[in-house]
Design a protein around this nucleic acid. Structure first.
Length: 631
DNA sequence: TTAGGGTTAG
């Protein structure tokens, strides 16, 4: 049994176990440890219960084998009762069991208890130290993790590869560089797992090129390294590279895609709006047998929803045999983003009828959908029912949705007082909703008050300065607008540049405003000049109010015509056949002049345009937008 | 017969 279990053939071990007529504690324990060693925690807990029922009293070996299952499954009560049993039974000190408890409580997030067990241990080895260090690390107590690491070193223990992994997973760059020397001295620098973990550290810190350098150093790149690098390209918005990387990865021998790599690629397609690549991945996952995977399925629904293809999203959803809350959430938020508020609410009701209980994200998606569709009454009603009907305490995300809902409908004062009344710390997104609404509804007095609070709350956010400066500009208060711009420059904060992307024949093209060095700049410029003339003839007037700079109207127009959205629209019209949908993704919110221009383009060129911005979808057709100008 | 590590959606 042990031989089979040790090389991953637990089922064989189970067969032998069932054939043993005189089972004893040792045979039971081998089965148990075989299951936990192979990640079959649920079955391990079942076996443990069976032992309890049969009154087979576990010894220290049995207990140290089952504890990882409790930790991984979050079985807090069961874990605690076994801890009580251990104390009551007066077992002698055992480093395996005690370390197991430290690890288990760490996984429960109970660091105080974990530390207490650790402090009371009479013997500790490297594994015990690693358990407490990684516990602090996983529970985001970096300082404490480092303190324990230093204490361990003072005790004369060097630490091993697991110690290094815990410190890397602190995801703290300063720590990363501080322990680099330790990594080199320890000789683990060339370990593949360490390299992968370091890649993750770089990617999370947005140093994608550094991550790629490590990736290239890895001689035998495994699926995890490939997937992590894919996430790196995708997370940094380098979608062209992401798609190339994925294709390259599929060409590698001995690489078999798994659900994680598929989900990572689908998530990239979802963020970028790469529908054609998304469809390819959809076909690929069916070919590789992942059609019944509920995680992959949710990622497919999310991808189609984020590519404005709700028909495909719904089709996949209906086709899925097993659905959990996340699948429903993906569909609901899809309807919300595209402005189909009633469909979102309908789907929400259907989900409840199917017997599933909504979770926090469900309610965020539904409230957000109401906000996008301007369904004020329905949104407020759902918000009021949250606590009573679904036993969900509104989080700051829910408040943010409702504040947005009220603000946009013009009830800015109500929204402001709701924010002041709630028992949570107001977040930046709430202030942003209020400030944008103050701008739209020209409530400059409240806008001024809100902006003061906002700058105090988050003085280091460039976006807030821009918003504030834009509001001053709209109010004609150029002095304040200029001052705000100057303080932004002085503070050295960088605002995120607006980028618009479009996928043409599976290739991604990204544009930045006034980017004259773009390889397609000249042909786009020429096309765009003709486009502007055509839509002007149809009645388009450039909205120079969208340019928040104190310059002449001609310069303002020049700036407007170089917006990244317009460059992408022009490129899309140039490179796609008449009748096809032009799909664009923008990382920030669409500007109001580009919104107006898109409506005219859809009419003059008889094309459907979809623009996904940071907030929602705009579908332009025959001179109108699906958002009904509500955004 | 016993404990610990790198990748993933909403």
């Amino acid at each position: 049994m042990n031989a089979y279990a040790s090389c991953g053939l637990v089922s064989k071990a189970q067969i032998i176990f069932s054939q043993i007529s005189n089972k004893n504690l040792v045979t039971w324990t081998i089965l148990l440890s075989g299951l936990t060693k192979n990640g079959r925690f649920l079955e391990a807990v079942d076996v443990f219960y069976e032992m309890v029922v049969l009154e087979i009293r576990p010894n220290e070996i049995t207990i140290s084998s089952i504890l990882p299952a409790f930790g991984k499954l979050g079985r807090v009560l069961l874990g605690k009762s076994v801890h009580c049993y251990w104390i009551r039974s007066n077992f002698s000190d055992n480093v395996f069991v005690e370390t197991g408890f430290v690890d288990m409580y760490s996984k429960f997030g109970c660091m105080k208890i974990a530390r207490n067990v650790f402090d009371n241990m009479s013997v500790r080895n490297v594994v015990s130290w690693n358990a407490i260090i990684s516990g602090y690390s996983e529970n985001r107590c970096g300082e404490e993790a480092l303190r324990m690491f230093n204490w361990m070193r003072r005790k004369g223990l060097f630490g091993d590869i697991f110690t290094v992994m815990s410190l890397i997973s602190l995801d703290d760059f300063t720590v990363g560089s501080r322990i680099h020397g330790f990594i080199v001295r320890s000789g683990y620098e060339n370990d593949q797992l360490i390299k992968t973990a370091l890649m993750g550290l770089y990617i999370n810190g947005s140093f994608v090129n550094d991550a790629y350098r490590i990736f290239e150093e890895i001689k035998k790149k495994d699926l995890i390294a490939w997937t992590l690098m894919l996430r790196g390209f995708s997370k940094s918005g380098n979608w062209r590279r992401a798609i190339e990387h994925f294709n390259e990865m599929m060409g590698e021998d001995k690489i078999m895609l798994d659900s994680v790599s598929l989900i990572t690629m689908l998530s990239g397609c979802s963020c970028s709006g790469a529908l054609q690549q998304g469809r390819r991945v959809h076909a690929l996952l069916i070919k590789s047998g992942f059609q019944d995977d509920i995680f992959v399925g949710t990622a497919v629904i999310d991808m189609y929803a984020n590519c404005a293809s709700m028909r495909d999203a719904k089709m996949y959803f209906e086709w899925m045999a097993d659905k959990d809350v996340a699948c429903w959430n993906a569909l609901i938020s899809g309807y919300g983003m595209i402005g189909c508020g009633n469909e979102a609410i309908d789907t929400f009701l259907k989900m409840r009828n199917s017997g599933l209980s909504p979770d926090e994200s469900t309610l965020v998606s539904v409230l957000c959908a109401c906000s996008h569709a301007g369904l004020v009454q329905q949104g407020l009603q759902i918000f009021d029912q949250m606590a009573e009907v679904w036993n969900l305490i509104p989080s700051s995300k829910h408040y943010a949705c409702v504040i947005d809902l009220l603000s946009r409908s013009g009830q800015v004062n109500d929204a402001y007082s709701l924010m002041k009344r709630m028992h949570l710390q107001p977040g930046v997104e709430m202030y942003s909703s209020l400030l944008t609404a103050c701008k739209i509804h020209r409530n400059f007095e409240l806008g001024d008050e809100i902006s003061r609070e906002l700058i105090q709350l988050k003085p280091n956010d460039a976006g807030q300065y821009v918003l504030l400066s834009n509001m001053y500009a709209l109010a004609g208060n150029w002095d304040c607008a200029r001052m705000t711009r100057i303080s932004l420059k002085l503070s050295n904060l960088k605002k995120i540049p607006g980028l618009s992307s479009i996928e043409i024949n599976g290739e991604m093209f990204t544009f930045m405003a006034s980017q004259t060095d773009h390889p397609h700049y000249l042909e786009i410029k020429e096309f765009l000049e003709g486009l502007i003339l055509k839509i002007e003839a149809a009645g388009y007037e450039p909205d120079t109010n969208s340019v928040h700079l104190d310059v002449s109207d001609d310069v303002k127009k020049d700036i407007l015509f170089q917006h990244s959205e317009k460059l992408a629209i022009a490129f899309g019209l140039m490179r796609t056949k008449p009748g096809t949908v032009v799909r664009i993704t923008k990382n920030l919110r669409i500007c109001s002049d580009c919104h107006t221009a898109s409506k005219f383009v859809s009419k003059v060129y008889a094309r459907v345009l979809t623009i996904k911005d940071a907030n929602r979808f705009h579908v332009f057709g025959d001179g109108v937008c699906s958002c009904k100008d509500w955004w």
